[in-house]
Structure formats: C-alpha cells, structure tokens
Design a protein around this nucleic acid. Sequence first.
DNA 1: AATAGATACAACCGCGGAGCT
DNA 2: GAGCTCCGCGGTTGTATCTAT
Length: 264
Amino acid sequence: MDHHQDDTKSSRNYSQSEEDLLELRRGPWTVDEDFTLINYIAHHGEGRWNSLARSAGLKRTGKSCRLRWLNYLRPDVRRGNITLEEQLLILELHSRWGNRWSKIAQHLPGRTDNEIKNYWRTRVQKHAKQLKCDVNSKQFKDTMRYLWMPRLVERIQAAAAAAPNLDVAVALPRPENSSAAASSESFGTPASDLTDCYNNQDCYAANNNQFSYGDQLSLSSPSGYFNQGLDFGGQWAMDGGDASDSLWSVDDVWFLQQQFNTNA
DNA sequence: AATAGATACAACCGCGGAGCT
DNA sequence: GAGCTCCGCGGTTGTATCTAT
C-alpha cells in the first residue's frame, strides 16, 4: 500500500499551482458554501465526499466537506455547553479508551469527536497543567476517578435535587451494553469503578434520579495518593459558571500538588 | 479604551485501514 | 499482490472571542 500517493482530491497535499488550478478553497466556510452543501446532501445524501464536493460545485476537498457536515451542519449535531452528565461520561470513557474520540463520541448523542477532543484539551488538560502533572499519569487519572468524577456526580445529584422535575440522572447513558467491561474493546484494562457501577444495577440507579456512585467512590484511593476520609466538600468552589472550571479550589490544587510531590 | 494573554472551537494535516481494480 | 482511491481518526494549528490589566 502506498498511503502517500493517495487521496487525489482529499488528503494529498496540493502544490500551490495545483491549488490555483483547482481553485480549492480553504479556511472558514461561508454561508453560501454551507447552504450548497446542505442542499446537496438533502437531495443526494452524504458519503462519497470527493465526488460530492465536485458534483455540488464546491471548491473544497471531500475531506473538508465531510468535516464541515459532520462537525457543524448535520441537523442532529448538538451545540452548547457540555453538561455535567456528558462530562462525567467523557471522563469515564476516556479512562477506559484513551484518546479514541470518535468512539467516545458515539456514546454522546449529537456530540462530535472534535468537540469532545477540544473539551478534553481545553478543560481536562488545563487541570493537569494546574496540578503540574502529566494528563496520562496514574496520579492524574486517579484524581479524575476519585475526586473529579465523584464531584461531578455530587453536582448532578444536587442539580437533580434542586430541580426534581428534571430527569437529570437518566441523562447519563450507559457507555456500553452490559458486557462492555468484558469485551475486547476494554483493551484488557481493568474496568473503572464507574464502569463497575454501570454494570451494577444497584449502583447505577438511573430510574430513580439517584446515583450511589458517590458512596462507592468516597473511599480512599487504593493508590494511596489521598488521605483516607478526606473531606473536600467544604472546599468545593461553586462559581455557577462553567461546570468543569470550578472543579478545583485553590486549596484543592495546593493539596493535590503536595500529594503528587510526595508520591512522585 | 487599549491591549496582551487566555480560552474555545473550527478547520486542516498526516496517516493508516479498507476496498476496489 | 500491487497500486490506487476513499474514508475516518487523532494530532495540531489558526483565529475569533473573552478576560484581565
């Protein structure tokens, strides 16, 4: 196979003269281009992106058309802030699958891999940076699992309690069918506690607006990074803004840095 | 009000897998 | 089996917007 002579009109690199010849456009899409693409797909369907681009008269690569459609123009694409439930699910699924954004996105209806990837880079990696640790380190992963995720659950519960008519908990989907943890897609890594929760009807009480996840995760970290029974509740900074940004208080960051330093 | 830095997000790029000839 | 094309993924970059000074 030769991957570098491929994609006659999609992924191969064009020389400037070729681009001029084809008048290929790059950069932000215009309203007219969007309209053309939407119209064409409405009449002919999606797929065959290279020929689609040509047939629709768009001076774009097939790749660019595909990306624009999937990430922005698709009618079922969901816009707006990532919800607490979605954050929780992203953290859980990322802990299981790593940077497999498209796979993670499959479990968040309306969200694109690009959006989730951006969320991870801008929010999650920011916290890792704050803590001066690597986002892939065991310490940070445990921090997510034993602090961040339980807190998200707490906040989801709090939101559910504050607005009992809203079906908050139900919004958290199971990431996989019940055999997920045993599937080959788990890459042989142990399922996280939350995965265990998902596979445990008692724990994942999706139908009564209750999570018992927090109870299970209030235990101390098995890795010994955190003191047993440490209560972060009083330090929880609720600024009412973006949900993920208030996950760490100044005290939290200080404490976690101490933990990382002593365990490094 | 100006501006520098930070943040969020849209878009591009390189690459690998799959399928077809 | 080799060569080619298409598709899709993950990493990266560019830029518009927001925030702090």
